[in-house]
Design a protein around this nucleic acid. Structure first.
Length: 515
RNA sequence: CGGGGUGUAGCUUAGUUGGUAAAGCGCCAGGCUGGGGGUCUGGAGACCCAGGGUUCGAGUCCCUGCACCCCGACCA
């Protein structure tokens, strides 16, 4: 039967990626705009999960949200040479509005440093050291006219947040910049179950305009590296104009006029694609339990006896409520019905978000629907279970032989346990993948072999741009990812295997092909 | 932006030497069913990516666009 098949990962990874995304119900659609996708209900819900994790934590760190315009006057770019070189080629520009040509074009924001700096300077917001730190963030989207879009991973318009903060001292700025990177790493590792390397970008890979870029990097299932998020030390860049005059300054405790230190940091909707590339299998996407918008779906099994079916429905509903609200302390939300074609789905949001698939189709249909959706746990509940007062639990990531039959009373605890264990299993599996596929290479042949085989290599580097170009050219796209924070400082005196010259750094650098 | 490829129903595709379209899945109605995409019957659904050309006649041949995919260069 010409079922909608998925190309196996081993056969063609990019095609597999396309396939699993398009087979996931309600995840996304192509859009009428080049390089842009529409986030469907599922894709949007995943992004909201990410946002729901980060936003309250930003707040706890003292960061407040603001909203700046989508458009930036062209002249703002003109005065930041390095910045404009970085972004002008990929900027979308608005030249007409209100039925006439604009006197000055506007850029659709590719990032908002220039608007944040403008805002800092307004209303006497920053006059004294007492006004600092100034911690703000914006949730929104940006547009970058990238040459090669991939759904979620790199789209022309993408969703993100951008935090932009000012500090009185460089030390405070650096501390905060790193704290944010830790939060990003926590999001990736604990919520998305994606292990990351925390580190510092080599200078040629850093954000144009940053003094230092800190990064978290992870390995996808094909061995390619993906930059998961960045936190930049901008220092005093952007804050001092081309004329040497500060755009923002304050009086410190010693009554000296001082320019603050600036950082910016972001993660984007790319993380959604990263989760698919990290955890997906040949059956479809796999959502880590803690980020899954629906963690468990009950699949009632109906027969031809209408009265019996009603009993099963009733049991499914009370089971969903019991699992969603395992304790009295959880907020007692009620079941609600989804609209349209999803009319046969009911959902309840509590400690665990539950869904019930009440469609009168076969179990196989319902099962595949949830497999393709990446839902972590399924519960089968039919006439047999009703008699025994039990249900059957199945995990998205375990073989079907590992189905667990549990009593209805034990189900809430069993589901919670399964979700927790699966979350850990996904993380462990991804971490093992990275560890297995990272090599300490001492010869150039080893480096080339590693990159050819889709692995990462950890090597001493002479720090020259020639070597960067050489590696890239001779390994079909090897790039310098980062110096890991926890990397051993054993590189001094060692030889760069690519150039044969001595290492310029204490630490070795990760090289890998990358998205 | 370079190199390669593909555009036919919601999806996957067939369409011979040019004669205005076919199937599977999905969808709708119903029957038998029901524990990992079951089955039977009946139905709805496509101006064959767009615009030019050649021709009595173009899904099919030619040109030009556009979109998407793959491989590069650029990037969260």
């Amino acid at each position: 039967m010409a079922k909608q098949l998925i190309t196996p990962r081993a056969q063609n990874f990019p095609q597999w990626y396309q396939d699993v995304l398009s087979r996931a119900p309600d995840l996304y659609d192509e859009s009428p705009v080049t390089g842009c996708i529409t986030f469907g209900p599922l894709g949007t819900a995943i992004w909201e999960q990410i946002r729901n994790f980060l936003d309250p934590r930003f707040r706890q760190m003292g960061v407040e949200n603001i909203l700046l315009p989508t458009l930036i006057p062209e002249s703002f770019f003109a005065r930041e040479k390095e910045h404009v070189e970085g972004f002008a080629p990929e900027a979308a520009v608005v030249t007409h509005a209100g039925g006439a040509k604009l006197p000055e074009p506007y850029y659709v924001r590719p990032t908002s440093e220039l608007l944040f700096v403008d805002w800092y300077g307004r209303g006497g917001r920053v006059q004294s050291y007492r006004d600092l730190p100034l911690l703000v963030n914006q949730w929104g989207s940006v547009v970058r006219w990238e040459k090669r879009p991939r759904a979620f991973l790199r789209t022309t318009e993408f969703y993100w947040h951008e935090g932009h903060c000012l500090f009185a001292t460089e030390a405070q700025c650096k501390k905060f910049t790193l704290e944010i990177l830790d939060l990003f790493a926590k999001l990736c590792e604990e919520e998305l179950a994606i292990p990351v390397i925390r580190g510092e970008k080599p200078s040629h890979e850093k954000f144009a305009g940053a003094n230092t870029t800190y990064t978290i990097e992870s390995m996808m299932q094909d061995g390619k590296a993906l930059q998961m998020g960045t936190s930049h030390m901008l220092s005093q860049n952007f804050l001092i104009g081309a004329d040497g005059m500060p755009r923002v300054s304050f009086l410190n405790e010693k009554e000296e006029r001082t320019v603050p230190y600036y950082d910016s940091w972001a993660v984007s909707s790319r993380l959604i694609g990263a989760a698919f590339m990290t955890h997906g299998d040949d059956d479809g996407i796999v959502l880590p339990p803690r980020i899954a918008p629906v963690q468990c779906c009950i699949l009632p099994i109906f027969g031809s006896d209408t009265a019996e079916n009603e009993k099963i429905k009733t049991a499914a509903r009370s089971l969903a409520m019991a699992i969603a609200h395992p304790s009295k302390t959880s907020k007692h939300a009620d079941l609600f019905r989804l609209h349209g074609r999803a009319d046969c789905f009911e959902e309840v949001r509590g400690d665990i978000t539950m869904r019930i698939d009440l469609r009168e189709t076969r179990l196989g249909d319902k099962t595949f629907h949830q497999i393709r959706s990446g839902t972590p746990v399924r519960i089968e509940l039919g006439a047999k279970e009703l008699v025994e007062g039990c249900c059957v639990l199945k995990s998205r990531i375990r073989s079907r032989d590992e189905a667990q039959k549990v009593s209805l009373a034990q189900a809430p605890a069993a589901v919670a346990t399964m979700l927790r264990e699966d979350q850990e299993m996904l993380f462990a599996r991804a971490k093992e993948m990275r560890v297995k596929n990272t090599v300490d290479a001492t010869s150039y042949d080893e480096v080339k072999a590693a990159l050819e085989a889709g692995k990462w290599a950890l090597i001493p580097w002479d720090g020259t741009p020639e070597t960067v170009r050489k590696l890239k050219a001779e390994t079909s796209g090897g790039t310098y990812r980062c110096f890991a924070f926890d990397g051993k400082e054993d590189a001094m005196g060692l030889q760069d295997p690519v150039s044969g010259k001595p290492s310029a750094f204490k630490k070795r650098v990760y090289v890998a092909k990358a998205y």
